[in-house]
């Protein structure tokens, strides 16, 4: 379903600094070569995921988990290596991307749905389901600007999870809304996972990973440290964190 071949990702930290015309001319005049402060967010990542497998990614902040998911989702191109994917992807990397705060909830359902690549007919047929799941029926014609952050997150989650994708990429989105909604969203995720979907899952909650995943990939400084059954890798990871 997904094959990741020798993927490496380099970020050039030098260019991230404030690059301006002035600096550009100074650099030309002084023949200064750009300082190359490279940073390899990922190096030589290889793995494959079979259909229906639920794979968790763990590792400390900055280990390269999100970068890896973005590469698989097609947001970034890897510096080296390649990714092969069979099936349609639903990337739930960040919820509510593309929300326009000036528009109402109703308008945002269509805008955000379009951003996620859903068709018009699909959205119209699922509209009631989205509204019902988000429990925001009374606020449909209110600009999202006036929503609480929890309400925005609920709306976003409801839109993102309305599809039945073949591959689902989830980056830390299970904890949205109040406790009741969290429970509801976790159940929803479980039912999506249970339906034979291939899932790539990033979370800092080791318990969630242990519960939901078949296989776990432990990333450390852009390299794969360990791959294996969820329980074993999670225990190893926990131990290493506690002892460092």
């Amino acid at each position: 379903m997904i094959t990741v071949n020798n993927v490496s990702m380099r970020f050039n930290l030098g260019v991230e600094k404030n690059f301006s015309l002035k600096q550009f001319f100074i650099d030309i005049l002084t023949h200064k070569k750009k300082e190359k402060s490279e940073f390899w967010a990922l190096s030589d990542i290889n793995f494959s995921v079979k259909k229906g497998e639920v794979v968790g990614f763990i590792g400390s902040n900055g280990a390269g988990k999100s970068t890896l998911l973005k590469i698989i989702a097609g947001v970034m191109k890897p510096t080296k290596g390649s990714v092969e994917i069979y099936g349609n992807i639903c990337p739930m990397i960040e919820l509510g991307a593309g929300f326009d705060m000036d528009l109402t909830a109703r308008e945002n359902i269509f805008l955000n749905g379009a951003v996620l690549g859903y068709s018009k007919e699909f959205l119209e047929s699922k509209f009631d389901e989205i509204v019902e799941f988000s429990e925001l029926k009374d606020f449909l014609d209110v600009p999202v600007r006036n929503f609480s952050s929890g309400m925005v997150a609920r709306l976003a989650f409801s839109i993102a999870t309305i599809v039945d994708p073949e591959i689902l990429i989830v980056d830390e989105i299970l904890s949205v809304g109040d406790i009741a909604f969290q429970q509801k969203s976790e159940n929803k995720m479980r039912s999506m996972i249970g339906g034979g979907t291939t899932v790539l899952f990033v979370s800092h909650s080791i318990d969630q990973i242990k519960n939901l995943c078949d296989k776990v990939i432990w990333l450390d400084h852009g390299k794969i440290k360990q791959v294996g059954p969820a329980k074993e890798i999670c225990d190893n990871y926990k131990e290493s964190v506690l002892h460092s």
């Binding site: 326009d100 000036d102 528009l103 308008e107 269509f110 805008l111 379009a114 951003v115 690549g117």
Partner: peptide, 15 residues
């Protein structure tokens, strides 16, 4: 992506 295009344009109008 024509649906997205349409949504982006109508968003601009509304805003």
């Amino acid at each position: 992506y024509s649906f997205l295009l349409q949504q982006l344009i109508s968003r601009d109008f509304k805003v």
